[in-house]
């Protein structure tokens, strides 16, 4: 008796197309997540070289991070650059968004596009250009040079979310505040800014990640004593390829997850990024 002669099972059968789709989706997810997740077991490996699967479990590579001060100082520098750059971008981005959304002036659209160009510009061109500009200014291989370069890179993310959020806020809220006795600053501080906050937080999250992760532009601007974590890791990997890098990646992964979790709790990140 052939299989197709059997009566259909009483419960719902999953159509073949749906099963294929499920398998495809699972593959895509695996493809996206696997390289990231494979880093975690490697970090706990006891092997000296990067082999998978690891032959034993140890925390020696985490200890190695602590033993190497250059990683810690690079982490501190990257974090400081990311925070300073994001802070400056937020102030500049919000002010610019108010001008773009609430006012009309000649060249507005062109200017907004200009602010957004770092998103589409090849990073290597920007890197070379910034290095050329910063050399005569004495900003090359300095903290502030790096931070300002990162402002250029992070501003579009902040500006874009700020413009989108502000466009959604009806002008009548600000006007209502005015009729209730709030001057421009008070209306901004007590009404517009709190209403912008969720969008700004989403933009700031992007900005922090972009800055912390930045490689190409930073490479042209760093030097002895001013080294970001991604570059420090790259330098390390040129000489030694051991699970220390996996350990650092695991720490960063954990920190990122923690940050996203906190923001999600505070404002509902999914709402800000998606729909």
């Amino acid at each position: 008796m052939a299989a197709h002669d059997l009566p259909a099972p009483p419960l719902r059968t999953v159509p073949r197309g749906e099963r294929l789709l499920a398998a495809y989706v699972a593959l895509v997810i695996l493809f996206l997540a696997l390289p990231v997740l494979i880093v975690v077991p490697l970090a706990f490996s006891s092997d000296v070289s990067l082999t998978f699967p690891p032959r034993g479990v140890s925390l020696r590579w985490f200890a190695n991070i602590w033993a190497r001060p250059e990683f810690l100082s690079a982490f501190a520098l990257s974090a400081a650059v990311a925070l300073v750059a994001t802070g400056i971008s937020m102030v500049a981005g919000v002010l610019a968004a108010i001008a773009f959304v609430r006012h009309t002036f000649p060249g507005r659209d062109a200017l907004l596009m200009l602010f957004m160009t770092p998103l589409v510009f090849p990073a290597i061109v920007l890197a070379a250009a910034l290095a050329l500009v910063m050399t005569p200014l004495g900003l090359l291989r300095s903290f502030w040079g790096l931070a300002l370069a990162h402002v250029v890179l992070t501003l579009p993310y902040i500006l874009r979310t700020a413009v989108a959020t502000l466009s959604e806020i009806d002008r009548s809220y600000q006007e209502a505040a005015h009729t209730l006795g709030a001057d421009r600053w008070q209306a901004f501080r007590h009404v517009t800014l709190p209403m912008l906050r969720p969008g700004l937080l989403a933009g700031a999250t992007f900005a922090l990640i972009i800055s912390f992760d930045e490689f190409t532009v930073s490479m042209f601007l760093v030097g002895p004593g001013v080294m970001t974590l991604p570059l420090e890791m790259y330098n390390y990997s040129e000489f030694t390829l051991d699970p220390t890098l996996a350990a650092i990646s695991t720490v960063l992964l954990a920190l990122t997850c923690l940050a996203i979790l906190i923001i999600e709790r505070l404002v509902g990140l999914g709402k800000q990024f998606g729909g």
Binding site: E175, A176, H178, T179, G181, A182, D183, Q186, P194, M195
Partner: peptide, 20 residues
């Protein structure tokens, strides 16, 4: 005179209640 110095009360069509 700026609106915030006029001592007026206004009800907007959409009410403009501060959502936060």
């Amino acid at each position: 005179v700026a609106p915030w110095k006029r001592n007026i009360g206004m009800v907007f069509q959409n009410y403009a209640l501060f959502p936060h």
